[in-house]
Design a binder for these strands. Structure first.
Lengths: 216, 216
DNA sequence: TAGATTGTTAATCGATTAACAATC
DNA sequence: TAGATTGTTAATCGATTAACAATC
């Protein structure tokens, strides 16, 4: 009913609020004002209050925000109160790194299987997650619930595999391949383009150098 | 002299233009109009022209843009025409993945060394990049030019190592640790927070589910 | 109650899109 | 020359910040 349509900018900031609140809990802080959080996170207090109020009034006038309560509310908003089964296509180093990262499980992301085409990798286990042959992808998805498919394969294979996933009904893809996947609108794609990230850093290095030269 | 101050939004899009232009070159396209590129990239033609004109007039009225020329101009803007020496702190799976990704070298990012504290990893080689003990970090940086330091270590170690890097004069950090580094203003930090990316995907999954429920 | 701080409206700022004159 | 398409200005849209009344 209340369709306010949350902007991407707000969503981009939510996980960061969540992370800071988690740290506050660890250090035993029970309540926090938007201005105190503002100085820690280096964003304006106004923005914090605006962002949070997109989802409801989590604070209390004169008091601020209860850290634990706000933390759990943001968890709900982000869907971290639900389990998500995640498969990983591509059991190379990057696939390994993600499968090994146990903190994901804590947030409800359960890594259930890896897939690869390399016979040497098939059958091996990472933690207790088995590496299956890519040829069994469809059969696996038919028998197991898959909420998120992670693509850690070269870009040459990515588009084809993505289509196979979509044909099996997978609705969310975490894409590490260096390419855009052109998929139907109802399929959610979250891209992690490492090379683009590195180029942005390179851009900033370059523009600092240029402005230093100009000062001479 | 001409300090227009390019917005972050523009910089975020530049590597994507670069990628598409690279693909166009590969498929033999010699020239392209902003509207043709617009339909491929799913951004407005107006935005493409605005973005590019921040850096100069690369096109020609009535013709469009020469693909190879524009590609090489964007490369220059991104600093890809210069070599950047990159070290990697943390020779785990993620560090391995990055060290193994040869496409970075093509763009001028030369991986020169890995560092780790785990004795089992020290001395090993990835391609021909050696894994050195973290204790030698300072000595290495003194003797070798390091343009970018990559942090692929747990967040507990990240802040301390980042400070060591800054003390040695490193001016750019590519940070994969799940934490913010609070460093001096003149140190450039590019964050890759994988868990935040996964949470954004989870948010979108959740909000699709919610809107489906509301429709009932 | 007085002080603190939120929730929310209004003002500002910046980014995107539209339009069109310039020009190849 | 006529047609196409850029470069650029102006209009619109959206996001951020400021301000303050509501209220704990």
């Amino acid at each position: 009913m209340e369709e306010k349509e949350i902007s991407k900018a707000v969503i981009r900031r939510l996980p960061r609020y969540y992370r800071y609140l988690g740290e506050l809990i660890e250090s035993g802080v029970e309540r926090i004002s938007s201005s105190e959080l503002s100085s820690r996170m280096k964003v304006t207090a106004s923005q914090i209050r605006q962002d949070l109020n997109n989802f409801g009034g989590f604070g209390q006038q004169g008091y601020g925000y209860n850290v634990k309560f706000l933390y759990s509310e943001i968890a709900k908003i982000l869907g971290l109160d639900k389990k998500h089964n995640v498969i990983i296509i591509g059991a190379g180093n990057l696939g390994h790194a993600i499968a090994n990262y146990v903190a994901f499980e804590k947030r409800g992301f359960i890594m259930t299987a890896l897939f690869d085409i390399n016979p040497e990798r098939i059958g091996k286990k990472i933690r207790d997650i088995e590496v299956l042959p890519l040829s069994e992808l469809e059969a696996y998805i038919k028998e197991n619930e898959v909420d998120i498919a992670t693509l850690t394969i070269p870009k040459t294979a990515a588009k084809e595999v993505a289509e196979r996933l979509v044909n099996c009904g997978v609705k969310a893809i975490w894409n590490f391949a260096h390419t855009d996947l052109n998929l139907p609108e109802d399929v959610l794609v979250e891209n992690v383009h490492l090379s683009e990230s590195l180029m942005r850093l390179s851009y900033n290095i370059t523009s600092v150098e240029k402005s230093r030269e100009e000062q001479k």
